[in-house]
Amino acid sequence: MASGIRLEAVSRTFTSRGQATEALRGVSLDCAPGSFTALIGPSGCGKSTILRLCLGLDTADAGTLAVGDFSPTEATRQGLTGVAFQDAALLPWRSVEKNIALPLDVLGLPIADYRARIAELIALVGLTGYEKALPSELSGGMRQRVAIARALVTTPKVLFLDEPFGALDQILRRQMNIELQRIWMETQATTLLVTHGIDEAVFLADRVVVMASRPGRIAKIIEIDLPRPRDPALFNAEHFHALERQVSEALDGH
């Protein structure tokens, strides 16, 4: 059974050098189990803050958050969640295999039971043959794929992706988008994707949540009614462009 994500009236203010910045003010968001939600907005609108709060990396000043039936900290401790960040954040001294196994180490799970799972994931992200390679021997795109595999190793019920393809070029990014859709449809994990790319958001998500900054808040939620599986031809479809335009206008404050 999948778990959802729920935010109720969440606020978070950062203070640096006596200057208060409202990263989030009264944000409420409900992601149904198994749904795919994209967060998009200008830098400083608090989209990454939402993700950090959901992962228990930071605590809210007000409001409540839940991942499944648990608080973020409990959910992460139980291994319900998976995460991939913008830069791959691989440990340079661990091989591809061992980097993918890092969450198992942290959660104290026996790696021996996951050998098959790790091999399967390496195949899924197209890195068969690179099991023993060190991150320094991989290209940027390959490292990012290791990070995705790492995010999936615990078979998470909830997947958090913080601009996971932000550092990749457009062509590679499209390929990764298609891969990600396939992975998501197979795993049925509730997914929250933070992104800068309008096309990426529309292509992948069930809903695009457009955010505004100062204070960080939700400006508009746009439902994406495109049928699945979505294929690359969609990037040129008229309806796709119309949806992109809607997101773009919401970003401009219309």
């Binding site: 139980q78 995460v83 960040f85 830069d87 954040a89 440990l91 890092l102 959660l107 615990t154």
Partner: peptide, 18 residues
Amino acid sequence: ADARAVDVVRAYGGGKWA
């Protein structure tokens, strides 16, 4: 140390010692 890598560990419920 790479703050992102520390975040990955913490995102799986790892504490300071982890």
